[in-house]
């Protein structure tokens, strides 16, 4: 059905376009403020573009990169996000396959327990979870992924289960008859079919992990200097009497820029992933 673009559609485009500018403006504002000199940043003048007097070039970025452990925070953020996402994807897809293919009371109970864990707010667990992590020596960036696997399992298992119900069981049975054991069947047959769901779950988990603040803040051992980027940004503001606005804005930009680059590169997958995640919900 051919559709003619009417005047109404054009007006609609205009309105949405203006809204778009409103959507981008806050980030744009941080960008130009991060280029100002420390002394020129004040609450009253945040809307002013930098002029020749207040323009500081990349000084704030250099400042943030060199002085406040930004690079180590970036490294820890990367380590935590990547290790946790990989672990969650592998372990939870295996677990979900077991739950959907084994029809017993235990697997049903397990499923509902996972679903329940999705709804429970973090505040319910925060004290006991950080104490448990401490006791089991899981409070370093290299081991925190086990905590994340436990706490983040709910969503992943739920989404995998939802998708696996739609995979015809006959393919797996054929593989088994041909002599695969369950492990081979899973990795050689099920996992390739699961690829789109792996991407969707991976994206949702990455979005959560990269930005998570409270769990790493409480679990990570800060006496050893473990910090992620969100913790660092909060630290910029919280612990000093005077807020160092310049480096803070630069850090914010350096947190946002990688996200935007990744978003522009795999936008389709991200949007599909979100939509798929919702449909399964």
């Amino acid at each position: 059905m051919e559709k003619k673009r009417t005047l109404r559609d054009n007006i609609l485009s205009g309105i949405l376009g203006i809204l778009c500018i409103a959507w981008v403006y806050p980030i744009f504002m941080i960008l130009f403020n991060s280029l100002k000199k420390e002394t020129s940043i004040s609450t009253g003048s945040a809307f002013q573009l930098p002029n020749s007097e207040s323009f500081a070039g990349l000084a704030n970025y250099v400042n943030a990169l060199t002085s406040k452990g930004f690079l180590s925070a970036l490294w820890y953020s990367l380590v935590i996000t990547i290790s946790s996402v990989v672990l969650i994807l592998i372990c939870c897809s295996m677990c979900a396959w077991f739950i959907t293919r084994v029809n017993s009371k235990v697997s049903k109970a397990l499923y509902y327990l996972f679903v329940f864990s999705m709804v429970v707010p973090f505040q319910m667990l925060m004290f006991t979870l950080s104490a448990t992590a401490d006791r089991l020596h899981l409070s370093s960036p290299y081991t925190i992924c086990i905590i994340y696997l436990g706490f983040g399992a709910g969503l992943a298992v739920f989404m995998f289960c939802g998708f696996m119900k739609s995979i015809p069981i006959t393919i797996e049975e054929a593989a088994m008859i041909d002599g695969c054991n369950p492990i081979q069947t899973f990795f050689l047959v099920v996992l390739p079919i699961l690829k789109p769901t792996l991407i969707s779950v991976g994206i949702l988990e990455t979005m959560w992990l990269w930005n998570d603040y409270l769990l790493p803040y409480l679990v990570l051992d800060r006496t050893k200097g473990y910090m992620t980027i969100p913790i660092l940004i909060q630290y910029f503001r919280g612990s000093f009497g005077k807020v160092e606005m310049g480096p803070m804005m630069a850090s914010i930009m350096m947190n946002i820029i990688p996200i935007i680059i990744v978003y522009l590169l795999c936008q389709k997958h991200i949007i599909k992933g979100v939509a798929a995640g919702a449909v399964k919900g």
């Binding site: 739950i99 327990l113 006991t128 905590i147 436990g150 369950p182």
Partner: peptide
């Protein structure tokens, strides 16, 4: 193989603290 890793982490990260 299939359930134990997730289940163990789930007990550490959710059931027991809960």
């Amino acid at each position: 193989v299939f359930v134990l890793p997730t289940l163990a982490a789930f007990i550490i990260g959710f059931v027991w603290p809960f």
